[in-house]
Write a protein that binds this DNA or RNA. Sequence first.
DNA 1: ATGCCGTGGAAACCACGA
Length: 257
Amino acid sequence: MKIATYNVNGVNGRLPVLLRWLEATAPDIVCLQELKSPNEKFPVKAINDAGYNALWHGQKQWNGVAILSRNIEINEVGRGLAGDEEDEQSRYIEALVGDILIACIYLPNGNPAPGPKFDYKLKWFERLQDRAAELLALDTPVILAGDFNVMPTELDVYKPERWEKDALFRPEVRNAFKKLVDQGWTDAIRKLYPNAKIYTFYDYFRNAYQRDAGLRIDHFLLSPHLRDNLVAAGVDREVRGWEKTSDHIPVWINLTE
DNA sequence: ATGCCGTGGAAACCACGA
């Protein structure tokens, strides 16, 4: 079974690219982030026509997450994270897809740091840690997938020294990611490729893609049940070269049934 | 070193992203 995550950066503006990628790579389950679409404008018909069921949690203009599945029943478990009644940003949705619980995550960017946006990011990370701990206790196979907006280590940044003070790479954020993983999660890409330079994001300008000046910020975290089912993982790097493409690259894993 | 690009929404510029 192939599962993918893709920050589309606008699901409507990027619909041709999304459909082309779905057709070309045929993942069974897909997590999408940055829909930038209110719920009523989510392109459900086009996605259904492409053979996918969909659950989505959008909002006007920004954020937004969705989970798609092909030939697998999908049932929503919940949306949003507990712990902040004021939080109205659509960044989290959870669904049972077949036997696997999928959490689709769009973690806040957090820049500029320090500041209220950075504080919000750290708080959000704590709320995610709380939910992740609950999920581990369920004794269900769980996948946390999405745009975590953190480069976990120096290996995940083209030029680490330039990012030291950035909200995606500050020690507090790297520590938060490490603390999450240390609950018992497996970083799928790093389990299979502990030392490879693998990026999932390239800026639109400064020829970042051509220079390979990238970041690894989109991740798959697997619960212990799935650890030994992981047989392959990778990124669809060529998609970043397509016309009208997102600045992120799809990431995928393959699990044995 | 830097939103230099790109999206969406509202208004013909702005907020936001990483």
